[in-house]
Simulated assay, not measured.
Amino acid sequence: MRYRDQPSIEVTQRVHCDVATAWRYVTDITVPARCSAELQSVEWLDGADRVRVGARFRGRNKNDAIGVWETVCEVAEVEDERRWVWNVLGHEGAIASWGFEVEPTGDGVLIRQWARMGPGPSGLNIAITAQPDKEARIVARRLAEWQQNMQANLDWIRSQVEGVE
């Protein structure tokens, strides 16, 4: 697994609610900060207050292996009540893309959160450059961290909507 191949990860959760309810949760940018072991806080920037193309927000992160850092993200796509995507911005463009999708089902919705690394270099590239022979392991470990946090997001949304723990 190579960073330059823009690896991705996806988590899906079936939730018993309507599309509008699911959409309200997945477009609340503070949800991941409530659930993530890494994302500490999120705030809208430049007067933005909702998910719309071009809106920007800042995330503050902390990871024992990586340290403390901030990112600025920009909403890149919005299909109302269906899908929204944001890019994490770096010095050379997007260093990652993230998204939420809501798909109606017969008994509720399917909520999907996904993330893709790159194409621009990120802090992960420092570790890869220092240990190029371990690139696959470094990338896989980071994807596993993302997956764990995304699963926590979707489990929390389900608990809020369905009242289950």
Rank of each mutant, 00 (worst) to 15 (best):
L110M: 13
V68C: 04
E10N: 04
L110D: 02
F100L: 06
Y3I: 01
W86I: 04
T30I: 05
S36Q: 09
A76T: 10
T21Q: 07
C73L: 10
E92M: 10
V139N: 04
D46W: 09
R24Y: 03
E38M: 14
E74V: 00
G59W: 10
E38C: 10
A127K: 02
H91L: 14
V85M: 08
R112K: 15
D5G: 03
E70G: 11
R116S: 03
D80S: 08
V42R: 02
E92F: 07
D155G: 12
L143C: 04
G54S: 09
L143M: 07
A144M: 13
E145I: 14
L45C: 05
A55M: 05
D107M: 02
E101V: 07
T71N: 12
G93A: 08
E165L: 08
K134L: 11
E70N: 11
I29Q: 00
V51I: 14
V161Y: 03
I157P: 00
V26K: 04
L124G: 08
D49P: 07
L89G: 03
Q148H: 15
I95G: 07
Q6S: 07
R141P: 05
R58F: 10
A37M: 13
Q160Y: 08
I157H: 00
A20M: 06
A144Q: 14
E101C: 06
A127T: 01
P104N: 01
V139F: 01
